[in-house]
């Protein structure tokens, strides 16, 4: 296989990695402030995909005439609406989950782990009740679908769109975390929740907002990923495992760690898939073992909550 032939696999891997990074960033925000691993993060990702499918495919619980009118709206506009509205619709699920998790704050992380595992199961079953067990394909606007030829190779148009949307969302997260007072509050709260409260910051409200942000990021990633992966009830598990792996790989609490970790995982999965597809998922676990063996805190990690 020539190097040129590897290029599409590499770029596909980068696109996949950017989407993994996006899921991991939402996961990390919650882990950083709440010191709890949210296993339901993948289910929120799946909900985002299903809500997007309902909006885009005009499968909403609305009166028939409204639904017919909505189905007549150009797909591009429906898709754009799904990208914006689906994460907003998933946000209340995150708010409820945060409310349920309050009793676990400051306690053994096992409580949060068990609770969020239970919530993940409930959400997955809820998806099966509402949408059934069959797979769905998310409709994509004509301008974003199909492929194009470059360097005598066929490229997927949507993967470029997906990578672009992921980069924009990651840029927004970077701005919020690194450039705003809210981001400073989140970092300070993750470091020392007592001092944040003693400075007059409402930690309960801050946690809710962080959960909303993390949930919307998961849902947004679900919307973008839906046309690539297809939509099925257990797609959340396929997302949450790489997300957790990326955080450990990149280093807990590091924005650039999550970004680089996601890209590395995506590229390893993409490239190994080119040679031996059955090794593509296994390769990311091997990458994790390799990095963590030589640097237990991950690539960019400082002292992590997992080491406490």
């Amino acid at each position: 296989m020539s190097l040129l032939n590897l290029l599409p696999h590499l770029l596909n891997g980068i696109a996949l990695g950017l989407l993994f990074s996006l899921i991991a960033l939402g996961f990390m925000l919650i882990l950083g402030l709440m010191e709890q691993i949210n296993l339901a993060h993948g289910s929120l990702f799946a909900l985002g995909a299903y809500f997007a499918y309902a909006i885009c495919g005009a499968k909403l619980p609305l009166p028939p005439d409204v639904l017919v009118a909505w189905a007549g709206v150009p797909l591009g506009l429906r898709f754009a609406t799904a990208v914006v509205v689906a994460p907003i619709l998933v946000a209340p699920f995150g708010i409820v989950l945060e409310r349920l998790m309050r009793r676990t704050y400051g306690r053994d992380p096992l409580y949060g782990l068990l609770l969020t595992f239970g919530v993940a199961m409930v959400l997955e079953e809820l998806i099966r009740v509402v949408w059934g067990t069959r797979d769905y394909m998310m409709p994509v606007p004509r301008d974003m679908s199909g492929g194009f030829i470059m360097l005598d190779l066929i490229w997927s148009t949507y993967r470029f769109w997906a990578a672009g949307m992921a980069v924009v969302a990651m840029g927004a997260v970077w701005f919020i975390v690194e450039r705003t007072r809210f981001g400073a509050m989140v970092k300070a709260g993750a470091h020392d929740s007592e001092i944040v409260q003693a400075l007059g910051i409402d930690l309960t409200r801050l946690r809710v907002w962080v959960f909303v942000l993390g949930t919307m990021l998961a849902a947004f990633a679900g919307v973008i990923m839906a046309p690539l992966w297809g939509i099925r009830p257990h797609m959340g598990v396929d997302a949450v495992v790489p997300a957790f792996l990326i955080i450990v790989l990149g280093g807990v609490g590091s924005f650039w760690g999550a970004a680089l970790g996601g890209l590395l995982v995506g590229m390893v999965v993409g490239l190994s898939g080119a040679y031996a597809s059955e090794w593509s998922m296994l390769s990311m676990y091997l990458l994790l073992i390799a990095v963590v063996t030589f640097r237990a805190r991950g690539l960019f990690g400082k002292k992590s909550v997992l080491e406490a």
Partner: peptide, 27 residues
Amino acid sequence: ATHHIACAGIGWVPDDRRLCPTLTVAK
């Protein structure tokens, strides 16, 4: 709640200062 007490006008300078180490002084 502690944040209400702080907003009422009680400031605290802890013994170990408790600054957020990864944030700048300005932040």
